[in-house]
Computed example of a mutant assay.
Amino acid sequence: MGSRISFYNFNVDYVSGKQHYDGELFFKENKQGGMPVTFMNMDAKAGTKLSVEEIFRLNIKLTDKRILRPWMYTFCKQKSFNDELCSEAERKMVKGWWSLCYEKFDNTLTEWLAKLQNKEISDPDKLNFNVGNKCLSDFWRGTIRELIEAIAYIHDCGLFHGSLKVSGNYVVVGEQVKLCNIGGRLKSLRVHDKTLSFNLRQ
Rank of each mutant, 00 (worst) to 15 (best):
residue 158 G to I: 03
residue 152 A to N: 13
residue 39 F to A: 15
residue 65 K to R: 11
residue 122 S to N: 12
residue 96 G to D: 00
residue 161 H to G: 09
residue 102 Y to N: 03
residue 9 N to H: 14
residue 163 S to I: 04
residue 119 K to Q: 10
residue 39 F to V: 15
residue 131 V to Q: 11
residue 135 C to L: 12
residue 165 K to L: 13
residue 12 V to Q: 08
residue 55 I to E: 07
residue 116 L to T: 01
residue 18 K to I: 04
residue 192 H to V: 08
residue 81 F to M: 06
residue 124 P to L: 05
residue 49 K to M: 10
residue 57 R to G: 02
residue 105 F to V: 03
residue 124 P to N: 04
residue 123 D to R: 02
residue 181 N to M: 13
residue 125 D to W: 04
residue 120 E to C: 03
residue 49 K to Y: 07
residue 19 Q to K: 11
residue 91 R to L: 08
residue 6 S to L: 13
residue 152 A to D: 14
residue 20 H to A: 06
residue 7 F to S: 15
residue 196 L to C: 11
residue 55 I to Q: 07
residue 70 P to F: 01
residue 2 G to W: 10
residue 139 F to K: 06
residue 46 A to D: 10
residue 187 K to E: 15
residue 167 S to G: 06
residue 84 E to D: 08
residue 59 N to C: 09
residue 52 V to W: 03
residue 191 V to Q: 13
residue 183 G to H: 05
residue 180 C to I: 14
residue 65 K to Y: 00
residue 156 D to K: 13
residue 194 K to T: 15
residue 121 I to L: 13
residue 117 Q to R: 13
residue 44 A to N: 06
residue 33 G to H: 10
residue 124 P to Q: 04
residue 194 K to H: 10
residue 120 E to Q: 14
residue 140 W to C: 05
residue 102 Y to T: 02
residue 80 S to H: 00
residue 186 L to M: 15
residue 35 M to V: 12
residue 68 L to E: 04
residue 33 G to Y: 08
residue 178 K to D: 07
residue 114 A to D: 10
residue 146 E to M: 09
residue 55 I to T: 12
residue 33 G to L: 14
residue 102 Y to D: 04
residue 179 L to D: 09
residue 22 D to W: 00
residue 17 G to M: 09
residue 44 A to C: 06
residue 77 K to I: 01
residue 13 D to E: 12
residue 43 D to C: 08
residue 156 D to Y: 06
residue 177 V to N: 01
residue 29 E to N: 15
residue 8 Y to Q: 12
residue 157 C to G: 03
residue 36 P to T: 02
residue 94 V to R: 08
residue 177 V to D: 04
residue 175 E to G: 08
residue 180 C to H: 04
residue 70 P to R: 03
residue 152 A to I: 11
residue 27 F to D: 07
residue 82 N to T: 04
residue 50 L to V: 01
residue 97 W to P: 00
residue 152 A to K: 14
residue 24 E to L: 12
residue 81 F to N: 07
residue 166 V to T: 10
residue 36 P to C: 01
residue 181 N to W: 02
residue 132 G to N: 15
residue 182 I to D: 07
residue 89 A to C: 06
residue 185 R to F: 09
residue 61 K to S: 05
residue 49 K to R: 12
residue 122 S to D: 12
residue 95 K to A: 07
residue 76 C to W: 00
residue 188 S to L: 09
residue 188 S to M: 11
residue 201 R to N: 09
residue 176 Q to G: 05
residue 119 K to E: 15
residue 111 E to A: 13
residue 157 C to R: 11
residue 119 K to G: 00
residue 166 V to G: 03
residue 71 W to P: 03
residue 118 N to K: 14
residue 93 M to S: 15
residue 111 E to M: 07
residue 105 F to S: 06
residue 24 E to G: 00
residue 109 L to K: 01
residue 67 I to M: 07
residue 108 T to S: 15
residue 110 T to Q: 13
residue 134 K to G: 03
residue 34 G to Y: 01
residue 34 G to R: 01
residue 60 I to D: 08
residue 45 K to V: 14
residue 151 I to L: 15
residue 32 Q to W: 03
residue 116 L to D: 01
residue 38 T to K: 11
residue 159 L to S: 05
residue 11 N to A: 09
residue 40 M to D: 05
residue 125 D to K: 08
residue 82 N to Y: 02
residue 119 K to V: 04
residue 33 G to C: 12
residue 42 M to L: 12
residue 40 M to P: 01
residue 184 G to E: 11
residue 115 K to Q: 14
residue 111 E to Y: 03
residue 70 P to L: 06
residue 200 L to K: 09
